[in-house]
Design a protein around this nucleic acid. Sequence first.
DNA 1: ATACTTGCAAATGATTTGCCAGTGT
DNA 2: ACACTGGCAAATCATTTGCAAGTAT
Lengths: 155, 155
Amino acid sequence: MTTTSDVPHLTFGNLDEAIAELRRQGLRLSTVRRLILQALFAADGPVSAEYVARDLTLDVASVYRNLETMERHGLVRHVHLGHGPGLYALVGGGEHEYLFCERCGAVRVLSPSELDPVRTGIKQRFGYTASFTHFPIVGMCADCDDVHSRSPAQM
Amino acid sequence: MTTTSDVPHLTFGNLDEAIAELRRQGLRLSTVRRLILQALFAADGPVSAEYVARDLTLDVASVYRNLETMERHGLVRHVHLGHGPGLYALVGGGEHEYLFCERCGAVRVLSPSELDPVRTGIKQRFGYTASFTHFPIVGMCADCDDVHSRSPAQM
DNA sequence: ATACTTGCAAATGATTTGCCAGTGT
DNA sequence: ACACTGGCAAATCATTTGCAAGTAT
């Protein structure tokens, strides 16, 4: 599986901005919260609560609780790429919509503007204002499409 | 919450066709399987395993097992509309892609051709061949968009 | 007759909640 | 000081698996 987002996950310019926002939201800055933000900031894509907890030797429950709190306050967001746990990422600067290849697992992270033309088409045809932040656009990436049409072997 | 699919969920022309396909797949027709197919056929949209089990007084495990088997054989498919259990529907004639309003819960069921223009746009821009059968297009339906822009009250 | 299916119980994975001790402001 | 937060245990929800008895072909 290839991750097409070579650019490190764009979020707040730096950790301090995220922390500032957290305070602006009236949230306390606990050690655990700082650690979680650091972890999300360092990650090169969305990660599971379990991963964060294990990585930092924190209780998963605390991690879930904090992610949920920070999500309610707009600092964090989670996606579902297929089955398995939800994956969390910092909200911030740029990218938070997803294309997911169900064959190889490739995740392409996009900034909203990149999907605006698609969104416009959907709005015009169906009247829905679509968002691909919580569920990705699922499909087959170009590489897998090729492989797939060359070899008749089904997935 | 409004279900925009007024037309009964299109699948196989009738139950017998689904059963014929089941046999063609080398699967046995047990009482439980017939009941499940009937239930899916009668439903006006995708339903949870739990719902089917409760409705028919069957064990959820059996229902899951059968749905999974039939899904592997292409008779059935499941979607995730938000959190909560997966929702199952018969595959067949027509409609099995979804638009889901995350505000009011409205589900609009579409046949693939209706989303082909959207798919084409995605293919051209990103090289992905998208499918909205497993995850819907999530967004805000026209009604909710209106309400939302009129009243500043957030969801 | 044989292989596949069933219900029931128990296991698993993801996430949530209750509770009391500890910490941020 | 006081309200919020952390860890730990237990609960909950969705789904899966093991197993012995029952059923379809």
